[in-house]
Design a protein around this nucleic acid. Structure first.
Lengths: 136, 136
DNA sequence: AGAACTTTGCAATGGCATTGCACTCCTTAA
DNA sequence: TTAAGGAGTGCAATGCCATTGCAAAGTTCT
C-alpha cells in the first residue's frame, strides 16, 4: 500500500511485512522515541514479542537505534537515512520528566570531549532530562 | 575504628553502621562505579536488600550518585564532598565494554549544549562507551 | 501442491530493582 | 536496670522489562 514505507524498509534490506510497516509508520508519525510498551499499547492486537523482534530487526539493519533514557524501558527511534549507528551518528536525547517522552535532538550534535590517556570512545549516549517545550 | 570513614558519613548526616562503613570503604577503594550485584559478591555475608538500602540512604544524602550505564545494572559511585547532584555536578561516565567497569570522569566536565526553544535541562547523563586504559 | 524458510503468537524464563514483614540491635526514657 | 520505640538488617516475595523456545501460520520457490 504505502510504497514509501516499503521503500524505506527495502533500502535497509528489511522485508516489508504488515507489522513492520505499521511499526515504521508509527515511529515516523510520532517523531520521537517509543518504548516497547508504548508500541504494545498502540497495537493492541499484536504480540509483544513480535514487536520486540521487529524492533530488533530494525536495529540490526540501522533503521532504528535504542535509547536508554533511564526510564526503565528502552526506547527506539528512527535513524537518519545514512546512519550506521557509529560515534558520529550519536546525538543528544532529551527525556521530559513530566510527560516521559523522549526526543532525539539531531540538530544538537554531541561534542566528544578529550578523554584521559588510554581511553578510546566507540559510542556515546548523552541524555538530558528536563522539561520539554510542550510541557513548559 | 576508621574515624575518617565515620566522619564522612556523619558529614552527610548518615549514621555510621558496620555495613555502611564497609560499603563506603569499598566504594572509596575501588574508585569507580559499582553495581549492586558487584557489591553483593564482595560482601557475601550481607544481604542484597541491605546493600540496596544502604546505597539508597547514601544516595538520598548525596554521598553517592546512581549511574545508568546501559549495562542492565545501575551503578553507584561516590559523590564529591560538596556535591548536591545538580546539573553542575553531573560529569561524564565511561563504560569499558571489555572489562565492564564504569568510571567517573570528573576531570572531564560536561558541556551543556544549547537546547531547542522551550526545553529546559535539569539533569544530564553523558555516557561514553569504549575501551579503558587498563584494557587497551 | 509440497518443501523450506520466515514471521508471528503464546507461554515461559531470567535478571534486576524494590518492598513487606519479622527479627535484632541500639538508643532513650522512666 | 529495664522496658519501649525506632533504626537497621535478613529473608522471601513481587513486579517490571527484556528475551527466548516452541509451535502455528504465512510466504516463497519449485
Amino acid at each position: 500500500m504505502n510504497t514509501s514505507l516499503e521503500e524505506k524498509l527495502r533500502k535497509k534490506s528489511i522485508k516489508p511485512t504488515a507489522m513492520r510497516l505499521l511499526v515504521l509508520q508509527c515511529l515516523m508519525e510520532q517523531n520521537r522515541a517509543l518504548s516497547l510498551n508504548e508500541l504494545e499499547v498502540l497495537f493492541e492486537n499484536a504480540d509483544k514479542s513480535t514487536i520486540f523482534r521487529t524492533l530488533k530487526t530494525f536495529q540490526e539493519n540501522y533503521l532504528v537505534h535504542r535509547i536508554n533514557d533511564g526510564s526503565g524501558a528502552i526506547k527506539y527511534a528512527l535513524c537518519d537515512d545514512d546512519c550506521i549507528c557509529s560515534l558520529e551518528d550519536n546525538h543528544i536525547h532529551f527525556l521530559c520528566t513530566k510527560c516521559e517522552k523522549t526526543y532525539c535532538l539531531k540538530d544538537t550534535p554531541i561534542t566528544t570531549p578529550n578523554l584521559p590517556n588510554g581511553f578510546r570512545a566507540n559510542f556515546a549516549n548523552y541524555l538530558i532530562e528536563g522539561i520539554c517545550s510542550a510541557c513548559s
